[in-house]
Amino acid sequence: MNIFRLGGDMLHVVSIFLLLLKIQTSHSCAGLSLKTQILYMVVFSTRYLDLFFTKPWHSALTFYNTIMKILFLSSSAYTIYLMQKRYKHTYDKVHDTFRIQYLIAAAAVLALIFHLRLTVFEILWAFSVFLESVAILPQLFLLQETGEVENITSHYIFCLGGYRTLYIFNWVWRYFTEHRRNQWLAWGCGTVQTLIYADFFYYYILSRKQGKKLRLP
């Protein structure tokens, strides 16, 4: 565990907290993409299957990972529940039209071609990595459709992007300190994922500087 990874994970937790705070305080999920949330649910549930096989108390790290995995899975399920049931009437269904079936299909095909070992567990893991790299796209498209973004929603996406950026620093750190090689899959997808946020970062920082709400062109 290094400071970049810990910082990344903490930003991830903050982003989830901001997401739930936005829904609970405004009693609305306007501006949020249910499709992105569903994709994250799929990502977490295909990647964290090892929860069934790993003893949480094996080491301090597995304990930490287990807590975080359960947190991500449960908060993700809770967010979907809030958007689909309690605040359904505020959900912007008309604009949330990104076709996620194509993303899922593409990630599945890529996972069948590129994986580290030919096992169900490894293919699902690769699938989750591919899918995570594009899971934010429906959210970004929704924002582009509607134009102006609520502050808390833009902070949410900024934290998610920050988490991914810190993970890259973490990998560079581990490459040199632990001499880890052969991680092209996670590194490649992680870099693509971070690049997807680049455009958003630009407009986010611009809007912060001007002290205005974020507007996407």
Partner: peptide, 10 residues
């Protein structure tokens, strides 16, 4: 070997 594949991350 799981250790090599970054599976100790989230």
């Amino acid at each position: 070997e799981l250790k090599d594949e970054l599976k100790d991350e989230l």
